[in-house]
Design a protein around this nucleic acid. Structure first.
Ligand code: MN
Ligand code: MN
Ligand code: MN
Ligand code: MN
Lengths: 226, 226
DNA sequence: TTTTAATTTTAGATTTGTCTAAATTTATTT
DNA sequence: AAATAAATTTAGACAAATCTAAAATTAAAA
């Protein structure tokens, strides 16, 4: 029931890769964890041993039910801690990822559930990602990435897919953050870059790379809660 | 500047043993960490390598200035997290030690200092132990252990030296907690046990072992702050 | 369909932290 | 002062996690 920090990191990364592609590859996982393929293979064997992974050599792999449950718990912890850091300790939303990367490995279930209550059972983390509840239930996010948005449609930033410090810094610099209302003014097919307009600001150009990582949803001027 | 959890645990344990005895021995440290003397010797060599320890083989050891600084930071983190768990997450004072034992190894300095601010720069943890400030400055506690208290002097429980779950459970059972006012009614020289009286309760008998771990200070009915 | 390339796995090493059993040093008794 | 006991250290082993270099497998190109 309790896994090492390294195992938890692997489970979480596999879960995220599964979301995009159905099946995960050794190289992709190694890249995502900034480790080497040989190291990944070693870990895969251990995870299979513990029945956390469905895995046949040379044929890719995916999480078992057990494995998915464990991964979701890590994600739950990560996102709750991120929100705690921003809401209660006044960290910036672009400063919390690394710290949560450590905090997510604290093992006490009781702690997680009480933290959840302390934060008022929040639905999303500071980057707009949904927080699984104590049963591991996930609200899927209803959002699309900026690169797939049509021209001149005003939307609201609801999430950031990649959360490297470099990425978050770039967005900060361009005054794009969670909740920012914006629209696309122009698309440049040459490199798929976009001209983006934020209200009361000069337009800025965003690379395709960045656009793929900014998630937006329909602008809802009024609160969703009725 | 960043040490492994195991190194931090060793540094902290050495610091605590130093408080009581001036010099620390391999066996004492092994007992305190529930590990084996041979393992301790291995670790001592590494700590000396990193100049955290003054150590000559067979001659005992103590922390260097560096080592003491590192140890105090771990203690600061431990106690701040304990207080957080009790004050903000509604844990009982006897439930937090194990969790803090993990949380104390989270590395971010910024996190610790913000947590400190969030808690209002507290002076003591839930067990009455002083919390070092961000410079590592310590307020020494002005308290004495129950076994050294004269008869019939009313005092207030201000700290618990050993914080095993078993110990805290025993105290809970006898209605002794932080802030409890009590006095010693009788001492039994045979085994150094004590009869202790808490107001509105029947007297209870406390072993010498327990008495040595209950810290008390003069009963101050009015707040210390003026 | 061979040949070549990319991916994945194995073999063998390394680091960190721990252990047991045996040897060494220091402390205590006779 | 020897002999015995206690404390400490060394020697050698092991598990976890990682790496490099080489081999095996699968995929893509010629
Ligand atoms: Mn992590
Ligand atoms: Mn996040
Ligand atoms: Mn610890
Ligand atoms: Mn404490």
């Amino acid at each position: 029931m309790k896994y090492s920090a390294s195992k938890e990191n692997h489970l979480k990364a596999i879960f995220h890769l599964q979301q995009e592609q159905g099946i995960v590859t050794t190289n992709a996982l190694a890249a995502s964890l900034r480790t080497k393929p040989a190291s990944v293979t070693d870990m895969l064997k251990k995870l299979k041993e513990q029945k956390l992974l469905i895995y046949e050599r040379y044929k890719g792999f995916k999480l078992s039910t057990e494995g998915r449950k464990a991964a979701v718990l890590v994600i739950r912890k990560h996102r709750l801690w991120e929100l705690f850091l921003v809401k209660k300790l006044q960290f910036g939303w672009d400063e919390v990822h690394e710290i949560a990367e450590e905090l997510e490995h604290i093992s006490s279930r009781e702690l997680v559930d009480r933290l959840d209550a302390f934060l008022g059972f929040p639905e999303t983390d500071p980057h707009g990602d949904p927080i699984p509840d104590s049963q591991g239930r996930f609200q899927p996010r209803k959002q699309v990435c900026l690169s797939e948005l049509p021209l001149n449609k005003v939307v609201q930033v609801s999430g950031i897919a990649s959360q490297t410090t470099e990425m978050l810094e770039l967005l900060q610099y361009n005054h794009i953050r969670l909740g920012t209302r914006l629209e696309i003014r122009k698309k440049f097919p040459f490199d798929d870059s976009l001209e983006v307009k934020v209200r009361n600001r000069p337009p800025v150009t965003i690379s395709a790379r960045v656009a793929k990582n900014v998630l937006v949803k329909d602008d809802e001027p009024l609160s969703e809660k009725r």
